[in-house]
């Protein structure tokens, strides 16, 4: 099963293991990762599961959909090239070991 490491702005890192197909947002919320809210339940409607994906994993991610791209324009922490919505990242063996940085603010 793939693992995800969430790194907080303080530098504290938490590793969680999830089943394939689980979204990164669901993995964070069910494991109580601070700073990932997921207020809309994973519909790409609220942009409160914003994460920064470390560049070495960016190539393995599915391309940004138009919806995700547009929703990323309203994140609370400023959008960067590394910005993605956690609810749109489906975990797979290719993404095993992914490291994401949690922004300082979601709402």
């Amino acid at each position: 099963m793939p693992t995800i490491t969430f790194t907080q702005p303080t530098g504290e890192a938490t590793e969680v293991t999830v089943e394939e197909g689980t979204s990164l947002m669901r993995a964070a919320v069910t494991n109580g990762i601070e700073g990932i809210v997921g207020e809309c339940g994973g519909q790409a409607m609220c942009a409160t599961c914003h994460v920064f994906v470390r560049p070495e994993f960016a190539g393995q991610l599915a391309d940004l959909s138009a919806d995700e791209d547009e929703m990323l324009d309203c994140t609370t922490a400023e959008r960067t090239e590394a910005s993605r919505l956690g609810c749109q990242i489906k975990m797979s063996t290719e993404l095993d070991g992914i490291v994401v940085d949690v922004p300082s603010d979601q709402v």
């Binding site: 069910t30 990762i33 997921g38 519909q43």
Partner: peptide, 19 residues
């Protein structure tokens, strides 16, 4: 929504984590 489609999640999405 997702729960009524073909590929529903096996666990509910918690409002906050268990701890």
């Amino acid at each position: 929504k997702d729960y009524m489609g073909v590929d529903w999640p096996s666990e509910p999405l918690p409002l906050r984590g268990p701890g």
